[in-house]
């Protein structure tokens, strides 16, 4: 029964990983007609001497840190708001979920518009009597501007997951807490939070995996600039693989990224799996 899925994942996930690991030890120019040249660990060694890669790792980490806490806290708040049924709750939930299902490219174009010189943001700032901003062209704000879009985009899916978590908390626990004289805050602190822990671990792990791979929004909004302040690892991989034809070293970058993602997310995934034993 597990054979079809396992075989598939073996062939289409694990084989490519091994294959890719092999590529990362070679100098491989796809335009070149000869075979890739084996260079051992040189691609990896080079990464540590190139300041761009270290910087891109930092940018990627910072991006995750900017988006993750904000989106989880806001999504939890939204989930609490739409947890109890009311007329039109389905429509509201769907509305909040929409950002998640519109393609990232199209959504990024809308935000490009919002941030533009005469865009929504500057119109609002103007109404408030504040000076216009050019967030995407300022080294100190560009990454935050991209992160704000991503918070908005990730909100819906996180909210739905957390909502699911809320609904799996047995109502009796709340009743019991109420009988024990717990107020709203105490019920939240001692019933809701522990009840949500497994789903939060799941949400955090999945968000780390997706956010650490940010590419499309960077590509549309900033192309990695200004001054490399939004060049994420995946953006760097993309340019070195497809603009400079360096499949070997870009595979090496991808594996280092993989190690970081796996390190940070495996801890939390284990949290869920460990719980059920």
């Amino acid at each position: 029964m597990v054979a079809p899925a396992t075989a598939f994942i073996l062939v289409f996930s694990l084989v490519p990983v091994v294959y890719g690991l092999g590529i990362s030890f070679t100098e491989y120019n796809p335009l070149h007609r000869g075979l890739p040249e084996w260079v051992g660990l040189r691609n990896y060694a080079d990464l540590f001497t190139q300041p761009q890669f270290g910087k891109a790792l930092g940018v990627t980490g910072l991006f995750v840190l900017m988006v993750l806490p904000a989106t989880v806290v806001l999504a939890t708040a939204l989930a609490l708001l739409v947890d109890r049924p009311f007329r039109g709750v389905g429509a509201v939930r769907a509305a909040l979920y929409i950002p998640n299902i519109v393609s990232l490219t199209a959504v990024s174009m809308v935000w490009l518009w919002i941030y533009s010189q005469h865009g929504l943001l500057n119109e609002l700032l103007g109404l408030a009597g504040l000076p216009a901003q050019d967030l995407l062209h300022d080294e100190s704000t560009a990454l935050a501007a991209a992160a704000a879009m991503r918070v908005w985009k990730a909100l819906g899916s996180n909210m739905v997951l957390i909502l699911a978590g809320l609904q799996s908390i047995p109502r009796e626990l709340y009743e019991a807490a109420r009988v024990d004289g717990a107020g709203p805050w105490q019920r939240f602190r001692y019933v809701t939070v522990p009840g949500l822990r497994p789903i939060l671990v799941f949400v955090v792990a999945m968000d780390i995996i997706y956010l650490a791979q940010s590419f499309a929004e960077i590509y549309v909004l900033t192309q990695g600039g200004p001054l490399g302040s939004t060049t994420t690892v995946n953006y760097l991989i993309y340019t070195s693989a497809f603009q400079y034809n360096q499949f070997g070293s870009s595979s090496a970058m991808a594996f280092v990224l993989f190690a970081f993602i796996a390190g940070f997310s495996l801890v939390s995934v284990r949290g869920i799996l460990g719980r059920q034993r």
Binding site: S13, I23, A212, Q213, Y238, A254, L273
Partner: peptide, 24 residues
């Protein structure tokens, strides 16, 4: 172990598998 491996594959970045999958 098999389940753990399957779950772990969700953490594989697209950039790791893109080129090998293409060649496959």
């Amino acid at each position: 172990v098999v389940l753990l491996v399957i779950v772990a594959t969700t953490a594989i970045p697209v950039s790791v598998t893109l080129i090998p999958l293409f060649l496959m």
